[in-house]
Design a protein around this nucleic acid. Structure first.
Lengths: 245, 245
DNA sequence: GACGATTTTCGACGATCCGTCGATAATTGC
DNA sequence: GCAATTATCGACGGATCGTCGAAAATCGTC
């Protein structure tokens, strides 16, 4: 039993190590630059061993995505504990997303690469289910906050809008903005005045103001909310972000 | 001279044919399913000939992106001829983007592949420059419309917002929303009530309302504007879109 | 039309990568 | 201590990428 557990620990540790090295390769040279042969060589394991962890290259990338998504899910879950009006709680989710993207920009990029890779047929079913489940967890929480806002009378959805639609729109802004990080050539000659994180925060805020979601960005000090969220929920991460720049 | 031109025409025609077949392969089997060997075989040219058109596989994909992006630029340019208040003209750009995304859904995929897979080193410099130039053309036009709105008094930019920032936010929504098309697994169990194009249009409109950009979505019949843009500027494309579904 | 020069086309070739599989080494159960 | 099971290894087949020298076609000139 004890030996078995040690062996299992070894395997877990090795898998984490493989994923670390693989992630670096993915970041440096993109999906095509990530090679099972080179991964085996770099980690000094054989290909056969690597393939016992990941059945295909796509499955390896899916495992990277699972790591990424589980970490983000954890941050979102912590953000949910923030107390306040629905729009403040939504703001807290945004802060969690900011923390995630700034502490793990490579995770964010890897996620983009993964979503574009056609891995639906090649990655293991279990991992794909897990990915979808975690995605829907995060999406569901955002939707619930929207619904709470409607229930509280802070927000009124008109026309074709549904809670799911609004949640999708918020995610679209987040994804689209962070994609700018990867954008090799900037859209405008002089770089953006706002950082991607600020741009995302401001864009979502403007859109939610367009919905009339109370309290509006103009009638509430959300900078103070951000500081409260950071200090009360993400103190360690906040320190690390500020250390890095 | 005449022979030379004929030869050049042959080459042009062949390149277009190669790109057509390559585009089909890319759409059917994804980036990894697009193979230079199979392209050569399918077109009944040799690999050497294919490689005289495209120096690498990534360059081939970049050429596909150039085709699409030039088409999009053309649609944007036509949308610019629409007459009206700045926000209507911005809306016309949105309609152009909708036309483009529905007639060329594979564009976003090709562009994402190029931007994410570190292809910038592998595609030809000239093609990369062209891509960037066309991008900036479109971005510049959007920025100019924003500036026109500010000048006309229809829009007031507060806080950290600049015309470039607002333009970036609009593009972020567009890209992020269309990325949902690629997303293999939907975020919510019941598919989105809105189509991606509608979601994008509504999201941008809500955000611009948040900015207080007159005339607001609620105080103007933008559905009528959309019909006017479609009928006056994109009649043929509009027919094709409606034929397809 | 003939013939050498230049360009174009071709496909075989080396290198790389993916995923497999039988052989070998390590671990477990008894 | 020994057999059975499991883990590890790396050579192998199939496929792909990009190259390169040979063959074919085209061009320029007489």
């Amino acid at each position: 039993m004890s030996t078995l557990t040690r062996k299992q620990r070894e395997i877990r540790q090795r898998e984490a190590y493989l994923l670390d090295v693989a992630r670096k390769m993915l970041m440096e040279h993109g999906f095509s630059g990530l090679s099972m042969d080179r991964l085996a060589e770099a980690t000094e394991y054989s290909k056969g061993t690597v393939y016992q962890h990941f059945s295909t290259k796509e499955d390896l990338v899916a495992a990277l995505a699972v790591q990424s998504i589980e970490y983000r899910r954890e941050l979102f879950e912590r953000a949910l504990t923030f107390d306040g009006r629905p729009r403040e709680r939504m703001f807290a989710i945004g802060v969690a997303d900011e923390v995630f993207s700034r502490l793990h920009p490579q995770y964010y990029k890897a996620e983009m690469v993964i979503r574009l890779a056609n891995l639906q047929d090649r990655a293991d079913v279990q991992r794909r289910k897990l990915l979808q489940q975690r995605d829907r967890d995060c999406g569901g929480w955002v939707r619930e906050i929207v619904q709470a806002a409607v229930a509280a009378g802070d927000l009124e959805l008109r026309g074709p809008w549904t809670p799911e639609g609004l949640a999708s729109a918020i995610f679209a802004i987040a994804v689209g903005t962070h994609l700018g990080l990867i954008h090799c050539e900037p859209l405008f000659e002089d770089g953006p005045a706002l950082s991607p994180s600020s741009l995302k925060r401001e864009s979502v805020s403007m859109m939610l103001d367009g919905f009339g979601w109370r309290p509006l960005y103009t009638e509430w000090d959300y900078d103070a909310t951000r500081v409260r969220v950071m200090e009360s929920i993400f103190p360690d991460e906040w320190d690390r972000i500020q250390d890095e720049g």
